[in-house]
Design a protein around this nucleic acid. Structure first.
Lengths: 313, 313
DNA sequence: CAAAGATATGCTCAGTATGAGTATTAGGAG
DNA sequence: CTCCTAATACTCATACTGAGCATATCTTTG
């Protein structure tokens, strides 16, 4: 148990750093939007998180606030860029911040994350995405056996809310994986996975290098799940905001619109925010009160970890 | 970005393998209960999961069913057993199974997991755990500043549901971390963290080597969270069972008792199970119907990943 | 200045989930 | 036949959710 051979691997830290600016959810990238900030774990890093912070701050000059671990990948067929010295492990993190005005580093750019996942933004049209649905049907048709055809149709329907099912906004990763498997995203072609020939030209969303788009999908999925049961939005908000600002940010993350009155009821009954006494300079209608997050609640909830932030009082 | 020095580390795979037998939640261990199954990731493993399966099956001869990744740790001060060759990374997984009758390997033993976390089992007494509460108060008293005293009291209260707060069964990791910090578990003493001197003899629960107990706490916390929003219990159940069997298993995991009538209402309205037509051989009262899980629902929910398993229909 | 347009904010209502309790049924043990 | 135990069936109050109506307070426009 204790004495055993140790084979060495290389470990890489990858950050999905998210912000919401003017109702647009954005992710910090390098290489013109092709890769996420990342770098190898090295001995001088005191911890995984410390290493991540060092890399992000070095590569992007952007400070890191709230951070949580996402997932650890070993490279697989999709991503065989390692040499013969061994295997590469990627430890990914999700970070939440606000965009800083003083972006000194032009190499680091914020990108609307829906440019990578256009099918994930249903704020403008709620209905089912026709091109994607059609492409998935085409993929299902090309299956070898009837059983496999049925399985593909069912998976498509569950993931994309087709055939009368509800759209589940947290299934970001499943949807991306399905499109990859169906050969409908550029990474699939790159990795030698062909889609249905009649759809060979289809390249849904903007591609990223290696499997960074998959990691981004994992981050979005985690964030969407988390905002429903933990007050994490506040990491993304300025010190003061109107309730509509807050709602727009949540909607941007969730990719769908919310009922305004119910949203404010929810926020207020949870006692997450308090009035600042100031009003927003009106942008069109009745001026809105400015709110801030209540420090004490945040502190407790930050520590409480998982449980009852929404839900019973 | 692409050309960079790679420092190598060693990567270890660790399994928290859980089962519930006769209302007792158990974890598969080696070394007489002192360590979790684990082994280094090696080049022949096709993936992290494949490596984990290989190690567990080699060390324990127990097949692995459902598996999900838990967390990745880099070793820190707590656990400085690595040599000078570099850093060690531990990638932990949670697995769910049923205990196999044919245990060929005596080195692998199933342990009641509450022997490591006695304070987590509140099925017999709901009230607050007096010795622990007293010890934590003692720890809070020894803080240097009044502010720190208050912070310690508050954290204790939140984590352990003291001072009229609700017990949150998902905060397993926070509770363990708090006891560690307070010097109330053996690992703390081993790592040179002293608790309040008047409680120097207190060693809550059975210790494990390295930080395996912390990993176990992470696994229990994840499982407790998961059963509330995903039907994962079925991985732990035999093919047929009564509703009370099912309830006892959930209670075992959650560490608290549930209202029987409401539990069956919940299970039935979710349409998770169906009658087999058979009856259990009564053990005391009216005989109970035997149920099985519905295959179709399980298949869909398995794929659905996170979302609406309990909750609205 | 009055009306129109745009939000903010307040309130109602039905459907449903949840926690807790009462009542009835069907076996075994004595 | 009666008691004991557990299974199963209902009831009820409360809380949360989704949806919509109504009113208030600004700005813009004629």
């Amino acid at each position: 148990m204790l004495e055993r051979p140790v084979s060495s691997v290389s470990a890489e830290l990858i950050a999905v750093l998210a912000a919401v600016t003017a109702g647009v959810p954005r992710v910090l990238t390098l290489g013109g939007g092709a890769v996420l900030p990342s770098g190898p774990l090295s001995p001088e890093h005191r911890s995984l998180q410390a290493g991540l912070r060092a890399w992000v701050e070095r590569q992007t000059h952007h400070p890191l606030g709230y951070v949580e671990q996402l997932y650890t990948f070993a490279d697989n067929d999709r991503n065989a860029e390692h040499g013969s010295f061994g295997r590469a492990i990627s430890i990914s993190y999700l970070g939440l911040t606000r965009e800083q005005p003083n972006q000194q580093d032009a190499a680091a750019t914020w990108q609307d994350w829906y440019q990578y996942f256009p099918w994930e933004d249903r704020r403008t049209q709620e209905e089912e995405n026709q091109p994607v649905a059609r492409a998935l049907r085409g993929w299902a048709q090309t299956a070898a056996s009837p059983a496999e055809r049925k399985a593909r149709r069912q998976r498509s329907a569950i993931a994309f809310g087709l055939e009368g099912r509800r759209w589940n906004e947290e299934m970001v990763l499943q949807r991306y994986e399905l499109l990859y498997e169906a050969g409908l995203v550029a990474e699939a072609a790159r990795d030698g996975i062909a889609g249905p020939s009649e759809l060979a030209g289809l390249r849904l969303g903007q591609a990223m290098r290696q499997d960074h788009r998959r990691i981004l999908a994992t981050g979005i999925a985690r964030l969407r799940a988390k905002i429903t049961y933990r007050p994490v939005v506040f990491e993304l908000m300025p010190p003061q905001f109107t309730l509509l600002d807050l709602q727009r940010s949540v909607e941007a993350l969730a990719g769908r619109l919310l009922h305004k009155q119910n949203f404010r009821r929810l926020v207020e009954q949870q006692e997450l925010v308090e009035e600042t006494g100031l009003m927003a300079d009106a942008t069109g209608g009745r001026p809105a009160k400015l709110f801030r997050f209540r420090a004490d609640v945040l502190q407790e909830r930050a520590y409480a970890g998982t449980k009852p932030p929404l839900g019973r009082s």
